[in-house]
């Protein structure tokens, strides 16, 4: 099962929960940190031997010997990444989406592709957990290619947990569009509710089953409950605010370090998610 844990609003405890779910599973798990702009899952594990793979994307390389400055590639590029000047054709790497169109199009075969680094993926093993952490290089603008590279490590026979990027735009949809179940972590405040509504719409538009976990459940009001009831969204777990959890988190300790008693409830969350997944298949 591919279980995506997302949040709409940031800082709701999504990463803490993802890590705790991985620990509570007591089975082989792949934890994929797809929050590549701010990957934080690895902070909850002791540093061990890691394997690092560099991730690249293809960017065009223009051969000045062959280019006749016809201007076709510049007219074609949807992102204005190519400037065709009378004596030179220039690529603005920051704008290129690596679509490959210009290379195909050039009538003089002046364009080839070369690999350009955008970030890396670190891999660790911690007991039964395989952690894959994608890290976008600072100054790089586009995260979806790196997210896709992280997701290529998925093995269908394992439980896969995806720590999603924040928000509801392309990084999130890239992560969850093929997930089996999406859990949205929220908090019972007006901000939490507002962002939850948008996240639910996004997930439903992609036709994924959705469930909710409420964190800091006693620090707000009832509006999340009312909303979930009206939309028939199951609430799988509620975690009250405890300074103990906040302090443990600040030190890099996980949820289960602060509240070991939560393990059975988290295992139950995984079972309920599996149930949602099966219901969706039938």
């Amino acid at each position: 099962m591919k279980l995506a844990i997302a949040s709409g609003k940031g800082g709701t405890g999504k990463t803490t929960l993802t890590v705790a779910l991985a620990q509570a599973a007591q089975a082989p798990v792949q934890l994929l940190d797809c929050d590549v702009e701010e990957p934080n899952s690895h902070l909850f594990f002791t540093k061990g031997d890691s394997k690092r793979d560099v991730v690249t994307v293809a960017v065009p390389h223009i051969d000045p010997q062959r280019c006749t400055h016809c201007g076709l590639c510049g007219d074609f590029c949807a992102y204005n990444a190519l400037a065709c000047l009378p004596t030179e054709t220039i690529l603005f790497e920051g704008l290129c989406h690596s679509c490959g169109g210009c290379m195909r199009l050039c009538p003089h075969q002046a364009i080839s592709e070369r690999q350009q680094r955008i970030g890396y993926i670190d891999q660790w093993r911690h007991g039964q957990i395989d952690l894959f952490s994608g890290v976008l290089d600072v100054g790089q603008a586009m995260s979806p290619p790196l997210i896709r590279a992280v997701k290529r490590h998925q093995q269908a026979d394992k439980l896969i947990l995806l720590d999603c990027p924040p928000g509801t735009s392309c990084p999130l949809t890239t992560t969850i569009h093929d997930a089996d179940v999406v859990i949205l972590v929220t908090e019972p405040t007006p901000f939490g509710l507002h962002d939850l509504q948008i996240a639910v719409e996004t997930v439903r538009q992609l036709n994924r089953p959705v469930a909710v976990i409420i964190n800091r459940s006693d620090l707000g009001d009832q509006s999340i409950h009312d909303y979930c009831r009206s939309k028939k969204i199951p609430i799988l777990l509620q975690i009250p605010f405890e300074k103990r959890i906040a302090v443990a988190y600040s030190r890099g300790d996980g949820l289960l370090d602060a509240l070991p008693g939560l393990q059975p409830q988290l295992a139950l969350v995984l079972n309920q998610a599996r149930k949602l997944y099966r219901e969706n298949l039938t």
Binding site: E38, N40, A141, S143, S250
Partner: peptide
Amino acid sequence: PGLGCPVIASVTGADAVLIVTEPTLAGQHD
């Protein structure tokens, strides 16, 4: 949020950037 394209577009050319962080490992890292 984050560090990608929207953030880069928001900070370039501004007079000052105020970073709001929190005393956690994740806060420090980010």
